[in-house]
Design a protein around this nucleic acid. Structure first.
Length: 503
RNA sequence: GGUCCAUUCGUCUAGUGGUUAGGACGUCAGGUUUUCAUCCUGGUAACAGGGGUUCGAUUCCCCUAUGGACUACCA
């Protein structure tokens, strides 16, 4: 195979949606699998929809995911520039080539005229299609004598350049994911290739750039499938070899119907964007929600692709090795927030205690607690397998840092009995005899004491947990007292007895 | 409306002209845990419907239904 070159070509019209990130990821995986080149091209031919900050957002998102750009607006490359607005001057000549060949023509119809025609067609239940059947009745260089359209051109009248779609032709083409597709050209229209503002439309710019940049494989979203025949047609007109096309299925919303949108994220409490979007209407991001990029990438990779084995956890390198376009599914995937959490849980378990302690220390700092990293490692060890995100560690360990102020009333009702104060007093005096508070010391002593006294283990331990934690949750009780220490343990027993027996 | 695309457990999916239709998430039950969670074990649950083709269809073909994308001088 020739050297693989793929591109991810987003429009900077706002934050990059996770569907877009997945498209970028699949392009990247495919490129790297084949030792190829991954290109970032910015498609900003629509000046009106340009959004400040979007380019940076796209690049930061890819970087966070570990997707490295080989050629792009920042990286450069010998096929540059990589921003279409910077390539503005090269498109017109290609539109002219098509005109000279008779495959395109000038059209002078105004947007208003066309809107009107569409409305009228709709009234009779039809769809207005600008193509061979009506071309000669409209305002263009096909319907009028050359002298007339030359005059219009010379007088500076606004015009667009339209592709001249052939009439009644069975057009065959292939997509790696969809297979063989046949359409009749009569259902297609004479798409605008060059706008009256001097900019090309997506269709022209895309084909020209893909050709000039020697793109070998176009992997993009399914929303482009309807314009695929046009794109093949353009390659034919230019007599260029088309790249291989692969149209990815869409990402669907978790419930109900339709494709995933920002609203779904808001409604269901999960992000639809990789990173926080700070401009205008802000949006949550996976990074800020505590997802690891490795997990995020793994989740995305499995939305529409699978390796055909039972392995689910894949590093980027493993994904590159295992990836193939042929194993991408045909139907849209619903995003499942629950499974996304599970993935992050898996990745969190693989982190070392030291890594987690460092990450958790940041959260602790915002809460005003400063703790030695070694102690945090001990703490993290106790709860890591219970959490899916670093910020959940706090929810699991808050009572290590702050003695309970209030005691869960349900837990009190269930576990605080008449004899609880007496039992805890006994326990207290046993504990106060000990110098070392590690579990290997405290546990046998206390268990032995309970047995010797003939107490019920649950009665003692649950009451003990209640005064230590404030509720019935948390890790092994002897691990808790080991970490908070003797002094604090005794203090919590005293306070618990004082508060709870006074009720 | 038109064009194109899709359809296996609730979700992500594997899979085959003859399988007990497999896995994961979720869920349920049991076990472990003095608590909660984790964890372990087990269970639940699917080939959209109807016609063909065939000895036999989840698998191939057609129709219907449902869903989706597109239908701009947006990408």
């Amino acid at each position: 195979m020739e050297r693989v070159r793929v591109r991810f070509a987003p429009s900077p019209t706002g934050p990059l949606h996770i569907g877009g990130v997945r498209t970028a990821l699949y392009n990247y995986l495919f490129a790297k699998k084949h030792n190829g080149t991954f290109i970032l091209r910015i498609e900003d031919t629509d000046q009106v929809r340009f959004v400040e900050g979007a380019e940076e957002y796209i690049m930061e998102s890819l970087a966070w995911c570990g997707i490295k750009i080989d050629e792009g607006i920042r990286e450069g490359g010998k096929y540059g520039p990589y921003r279409q607005s910077d390539r503005k001057d090269i498109y017109r000549q290609y539109a002219d080539v098509l005109i000279d060949k008779g495959d395109a023509y000038y059209a002078f119809d105004t947007s208003n005229d066309l809107d009107q025609l569409r409305i009228e067609a709709e009234k009779t239940g039809n769809t207005f299609i600008y193509n061979a059947t009506v071309r000669n009745m409209l305002n263009n260089s096909e319907s009028m004598p050359e002298s007339e359209w030359r005059k219009k051109l010379d007088s500076g009248e606004p015009y667009v350049i339209r592709y001249k779609m052939p009439q009644n032709e069975e057009f065959h083409f292939d997509d790696v994911i969809r297979g063989h597709i046949v359409v009749n050209t009569d259902t297609l229209d004479d798409k605008v290739l060059f706008k009256s503002d001097g900019m090309p439309t997506y269709h022209l710019a895309n084909i020209v750039d893909d050709h000039l940049m020697e793109i070998t494989h176009v992997i993009r979203g399914e929303e482009w499938l309807p314009s695929l025949p046009l794109h093949f047609m353009l390659y034919r007109s230019f007599e260029w070899k088309p790249p291989v096309f692969a149209h990815l299925p869409l990402l669907l919303k978790p419930d109900g119907k339709g494709k995933l949108s920002k609203r779904d994220g808001d409604r269901m409490g999960f992000p639809v964007f990789p990173l926080f979007w700070p401009y205008g209407e802000t949006a949550k991001g996976y990074r800020e929600e505590g997802y690891y990029p490795e997990a995020f990438v793994n989740i995305l990779a499995f939305l529409g692709w699978n390796p055909g084995t039972e392995q689910e956890i894949f590093s980027m390198d493993e994904l590159i090795k295992a990836f193939s376009i042929e194993r991408v599914g045909k139907s849209g995937s619903r995003f499942d927030p629950e499974k996304a959490k599970w993935f992050n849980h898996q990745y969190l378990q693989k982190r070392t205690d030291n890594q987690l302690a460092i990450e958790f220390r940041e959260i602790l700092r915002t809460k005003g607690h400063h703790v030695d990293i070694g102690e945090l490692e001990d703490l993290v060890k106790l709860v890591k397998e219970r959490v899916s995100f670093v910020n959940e560690i706090w929810e699991q360990t808050d009572f290590f840092f702050v003695a309970p102020e209030i005691y869960d009333s349900e837990a009190v009702r269930k576990r605080w009995k008449e004899d609880s104060p007496a039992l805890l007093l006994g326990l207290r005096s046993e504990l106060s005899k000990l110098d070392h508070f590690t579990p290997d010391v405290t546990e046998p002593v206390i268990k032995g004491w309970i047995e010797k006294m003939g107490y019920n283990t649950g009665s003692v331990m649950n009451a003990f947990r209640l005064v230590l934690v404030g509720s019935l949750r948390g890790p092994h009780i002897f691990d808790i007292i080991s970490w908070i220490g003797k002094e604090e343990t005794l203090r919590r027993i005293d306070r618990g007895i004082a508060v709870l027996s006074g009720k």
